[in-house]
């Protein structure tokens, strides 16, 4: 399995993971790697840089500090602003583009983990894909041969995404069960 979360969404993924329970940085990294990054686990540097940014932006807060032999262990909790941020991220469709499935997969899992409607998320994304497909279809049908071929290529990729969305929608119950385990 490849690393499936784009760098820009690591922060939101952390927020989603923190929504169910506060975690230490190490626990957060482990939860993330198990679900989304088996082949490319996060570096600790990425983990703490991301947490620092979330802390600075008021999206997480330090819930408790445990003193130990090494550096103090901080436990992080999501703030109200963090919950709002992750809710907004999950409800907004992604811009359709090739290889989008990784971000969508992450969103679906996080929606299930946080008790939100993954079916709504998939439907919203499907509407966004179809919107772009309509634009491309209009462009193709009024364009020259080169335009038609370019639009066809994009349409086939978007269609593949849509098939994935449909299949995932049909497997949501199964996925929800797997996520809960």
């Amino acid at each position: 399995m490849v690393c499936i979360v784009a760098a820009m969404s690591i922060g939101q993924t952390f927020l989603g993971l923190l929504e169910s329970t506060p975690r230490h940085g190490y626990d957060l990294k482990r939860a993330y790697d198990e679900r989304f990054g088996q082949a490319r686990p996060l570096h600790f540097g990425q983990v703490y840089a991301t947490l620092s940014r979330l802390l600075r932006n008021g999206l997480v807060e330090v819930d408790s500090v445990e003193a130990g032999e090494g550096p103090d262990r901080k436990r992080y909790a999501i703030t109200e602003a963090g919950v709002t941020d992750v809710r907004r991220w999950l409800s907004q469709p992604e811009k359709p583009e090739p290889y989008l499935h990784s971000v969508l997969y992450t969103k679906v899992v996080l929606a299930l983990l946080t008790g939100r409607s993954a079916a709504d998320l998939l439907d919203t994304q499907r509407a966004e894909h179809l919107r772009l497909m309509r634009e491309l279809t209009r462009r193709r049908d009024s364009g020259d041969l080169a335009e038609r071929l370019i639009c066809d290529h994009a349409l086939f990729h978007l269609e593949a995404d849509l098939r994935w969305l449909e299949l995932t929608a049909a497997r949501l119950d199964e996925l929800a069960e797997a996520v809960r385990r």
């Binding site: 439907d123 179809l130 497909m133 309509r134 279809t137 269609e159 849509l162």
Partner: peptide, 14 residues
């Protein structure tokens, strides 16, 4: 059930 066909529509119902 084909998205490329549905792309000729104005809106969709699932």
């Amino acid at each position: 059930h084909e998205a490329r066909v549905a792309a000729y529509s104005d809106r969709e119902v699932v």
